[in-house]
Structure formats: C-alpha cells, structure tokens
C-alpha cells in the first residue's frame, strides 16, 4: 500500500497552500518553462523535462539586498535584510533538489550566509520524480537518481490519475493537512534509464590534466557568455556592490560567473585568469576537482542544462569523457 493523492485533490491542496504562502512551480512563459510564483494552479506544468532556469534563484536570487545603510541624526545604522515570506516550491526534480543540497555546503558552512539560511528555513520542497529522462541528463553518474527523495520534504511520483506520496521530513509532514492522503494499492513506475558518464575518479584525473593543452583547445570556441553558470543549479558565485537607492544605500549582490571578463581582475588591473583556456578550465576544475576536494561531492548534479543551453556545445559530459581519456594517455 502507498500513500496516494488524486490529481484533483493535489490541485485543490496547492490552491490552499498558495493562499498562505508563495507557491512556486514550473510555468510556461512564452517558449520557456520557468519556476515562478504561481497565480493559478492550472498554469503549473507537470510535463517531463527540466525548466530552462533552475530553482536556485529562490535561495540565491539573481539580485538581493544584503543590508541597508541608513543615516539619521548624524548616525549611521546597518539594517540587515530579512526573508519574511514562507515559500513552497512544487515540482522540483531530484537533480535540482540535490543542487540545493550542494548549495548548502558552501552557504550553510559556518559562518553561514544569513540570507541563504533564511530562504532555506522558510522554504518547503515538494518534489516530483522523473518518469522519463531527457537525453541530456546524466544524474545517475552524479550522485542522484530520477526518483531520489532524499533532498526534498515531500516526494510525489506520478501514477495513473494521481500521485504516490512519500512524506520525507517533519517540515513536509507539517505542510500536509490530516486526511488529505489515502492508501492505494499502486506501485511506482520503474525509474527511467539515464545516459551514463564516466565520472568515477574524475577529481584525480582533473588534477593530472590541469596543465594539458586540452583546455586551450576547448576554450577556442567558448564565448565566455555565462549562460552555463546562470542556468546551473549549483553555480553560486556573485558580485557585490553598494548602490544608492532613495535616501539609503543598499549593499546588493547579483549573480556572477567565472566566465565573465574581469571576474578575477584585481586592484591594479591584473587578471590571473584572463586567458581563455584557464578561464574555461576554472568552470570544470571547480565542479569536478576543487569542490570535490573541499566537500567530497561533485559540483554538478547532471541536470543537463548547460549541455542544452551552451550556444557552442561545450558539453560537460564530453569534457568528463575527454579528461578520462587524457589521464590514461599521460600515464602511458
């Protein structure tokens, strides 16, 4: 027996949820599918396939005020920004949920990022298993699976006319009213098969090929356009600036990317990573080597977004494969 909810009951529950909290779910905006605050639950997209941007922006917004500087009576006061709103993210896929668990590592490590922690505490994740896999996904090679429930609060798996419900955490339990779920004799569909990538031992190989001319050749075609970082659920770099706004000053942070010109420029104008090869290598070295060394997991969850969105087809699956090959050659 499984806990079960019909599609109609799910929608009316979500409707109720949206009255007391921000309900965020995939919706169609022109040709794109994006996680957005839902106005009408009928707009929610249940289709398989990953959204064009990841839901990371609900924890790490594109732009966010960190604190305000107020002046009055000749005194200066720093007023920290606070996250007030409770949010429920519905329809998050296992790769993106794992992406948030990956973001937790740098952002919740003490001293934790105050705003990130508040977003995290005030948000409940309702996941949706993938019943089919996109051709560009490779989650099973990156430490998660299409039905992985370990990084959400509630997990749903679509079966005929409804969903099997797994209540994973206390936070998830608190969101569900008594009596909403019924028991039903249904078994979950088999998880889809996902293309695999030779990620075994990749950090060690990355270390060995750090100085390979491979990176310069790969970077020949890179536009350093930031698209890969901005669509990625795990990229977490930002820039900070003080901006005047009305009568006060705001310290703002906005998404930034290691691919952008001047990302590593330092006082005096020197840029240690100005050349194309080292700049592009940074993306892969961070994901497959440095992050693994520091936190023990890859900084990629295999969602396939960068594979799909890079305008010149720099494909991390191919890079992993190539790097494994290079390592073998250099040993011989």
């Amino acid at each position: 027996m499984s806990d079960y909810i019909s599609r109609a009951d799910l929608l009316s529950w979500l409707e109720k949820v949206s009255q007391s909290r921000d309900l965020v779910a995939p919706v169609k905006i022109e040709d794109l599918t994006l996680f957005q605050k839902v106005e009408r639950v009928e707009d929610i997209v249940f289709d398989p396939g990953n959204t064009d941007l990841s839901p990371k922006e609900f924890f790490f917004p594109k732009s966010e005020v960190l604190f305000y500087v107020d002046r009055s009576d000749g005194r200066v006061e720093l007023v920290p920004a606070e996250v007030e709103q409770e949010t429920v993210i519905f329809g998050i896929r296992p790769c993106d949920a794992k992406g948030i668990a990956v973001l937790d590592l740098p952002y919740l490590e003490e001293p934790a990022d105050a705003l990130y922690r508040q977003h995290r505490e005030k948000t409940t994740l309702v996941g949706l298993s993938c019943v089919s896999a996109c051709p560009e996904c490779f989650c099973t090679s990156m430490g998660t699976t299409p039905d992985d429930a370990s990084n959400v609060d509630i997990m749903l798996t679509e079966v005929e006319e409804g969903f099997i419900v797994q209540v994973v955490t206390e936070k998830g339990k608190a969101l569900l009213p008594e009596g909403l779920l019924s028991s039903k004799e249904v078994s979950p569909p088999a998880a889809p098969s996902v293309a695999s990538v030779p990620s075994e031992g990749i950090a060690e190989k990355m270390h060995q090929v750090f100085d390979s001319p491979y990176w310069d050749r790969l970077a020949d075609r890179c536009l350093h356009c930031n698209v890969c970082s901005y669509v990625c659920p795990t990229c977490y770099c930002f820039d900070v600036r003080d901006l005047r706004s009305g009568g006060r000053v705001e310290r703002v942070r906005s998404w930034e990317s290691c691919q952008s010109p001047g990302f590593t420029k330092i006082a005096g104008g020197y840029d240690p990573r100005a050349a194309k090869g080292p700049r592009l290598r940074q993306r892969f070295a961070h994901k497959l080597l440095y992050f693994v060394e520091k936190f023990g997991v890859t900084h990629c969850v295999g969602c396939g977004r960068c594979v799909r969105s890079c305008p010149v087809n720099i494909d991390i699956r191919e890079v992993i494969q190539d790097v494994q090959g290079l390592g073998v050659k250099s040993e011989a």
Partner: peptide, 20 residues
Amino acid sequence: RCIRCYACRQACPGCYCSEC
C-alpha cells in the same frame, strides 16, 4: 526576463570593447 548573462554581447561580432 533578462538575466544579464551578456551572452548577446559575447556572441556579437560588434561587441568587442575591452571594457564594456
């Protein structure tokens, strides 16, 4: 909708300023 990734600029043959 713009996320200011600057992909438009990076792909454009006319956008080559050393500092945009």
